[in-house]
């Protein structure tokens, strides 16, 4: 690092000398980072040193650090500040989704895919998709279960969208908030090597919900075995990504607290999956028509109204 500073000072102080030394460095502007690094390389090639490789190796990391620092510099009331949370490309989002679905032992999701650029695009739209996937497929499965039952009147059950939205968005935002607070508190007591920012935790949680979208579509099949298998598979895949991500953050803590934290994360994840499956895809209605909810209400109302209209 000292070498870099030396070289930069040399470069700006004795620009005249350098220009005389190599003519091709004249057209380079200072503001452009890529041309800056080119300039540095040229300078080092003009004055050969032993640390050349070292310096070039540091060059990229320095640049990324600088850019990361610049990103956070916009104040929070400006639009640019929020644009930094949506600074992703299509292939990055696809990679992150893949990473959240396929757990790889020993690979940290945050370090491997997010890399100090947490986005809110994925979490937000994955949650939105999941809300409608659960509400719509729950509705279809309810229709399939009741199909052919006399006196059954199909209802869209739009209320389910509201309930699913409340449940999923509160899971995807409140649990990360609580976890972040907890990790901050633990960090102040015990020094942990790995610490995550709030946005990184939100990002991990949002992407970990992706696997439930295909699972929710599979839950349409009115067969309990298929449903439970898909629930367990989805839960294991995304749950293991969560556990493997947060285990390094609590590893250096006391054994009991670390295990308790990770098992709480896993338990909440299981609770969401099983809760959604049980609430939105309750197949007991087929055997026992006396259930609560809008469907049975309309079933009760429908005959009376028919009587009225007749």
């Amino acid at each position: 690092m000292a070498a870099v500073d030396d070289l930069q000072f040399q470069e700006f102080d004795d620009a005249e000398n350098l220009l005389a030394a190599n003519r091709d460095a004249t057209t380079i502007s200072i503001g452009d980072p890529s041309s800056n690094s080119q300039k540095q390389r040229r300078v080092t090639s003009a004055t050969p040193r032993e640390e050349d490789d070292d310096l070039l190796g540091h060059d990229d990391s320095d640049k990324t650090e600088l850019l990361a620092g610049q990103k956070k510099s916009a104040p929070f009331w400006t639009f640019e500040y929020y644009q930094t949370f949506f600074d992703v490309e299509t292939h990055q989002v696809l990679d992150r989704i893949k990473g959240s679905v396929l757990p790889w032992p020993g690979k940290n999701f945050v370090r491997l895919y997010i890399r100090s650029n947490p986005d809110l695009y994925g979490p937000f739209w994955i949650c939105a998709t999941l809300v409608f996937a659960i509400a719509i497929s729950g509705n279809i499965s309810n229709f399939l279960v009741h199909h052919g039952v006399p006196d059954y009147h199909y209802v869209p059950e739009f209320r389910k969208v509201t309930i699913a939205a409340t449940a999923i968005y509160s899971y995807a935002w409140l649990v990360p908030l609580a976890l972040w607070g907890f990790l901050m508190w633990r960090n102040s007591k015990v020094m942990n090597l790995v610490s995550y920012s709030f946005l990184e935790i939100v990002c991990v949680y949002g992407y970990s919900l992706f696997i439930y979208i295909p699972a929710a579509v599979l839950w349409i099949v009115p067969n309990e075995t298929v449903r439970w298998i898909s629930v367990v598979v989805a839960m294991c895949l995304s749950g293991s990504v969560l556990v493997m991500t947060f285990w390094p953050a609590v590893r250096d803590d006391h054994r009991k607290i670390a295990i308790a934290t990770v098992s709480a994360i896993a338990a909440l994840h299981v609770l969401l999956a099983v809760g959604c499956k049980e609430y939105f895809f309750d197949s007991r209605e087929a055997e026992n028509p006396k259930t609560d909810g809008a469907a049975s209400l309309t079933e009760k109302i429908a005959p009376t109204m028919k009587n009225h209209s007749m």
């Binding site: 409608f132 509705n139 199909y154 869209p156 309309t298 109302i301 109204m305 028919k306 209209s309 007749m310």
Partner: peptide, 18 residues
């Protein structure tokens, strides 16, 4: 897609029945 779903699942009121 969601708007389309709302349109597709629209069922007329029961009063319109027989």
């Amino acid at each position: 897609f969601v708007i389309g779903w709302m349109i597709l699942t629209f069922a007329p009121s029961h009063g319109a029945g027989p």
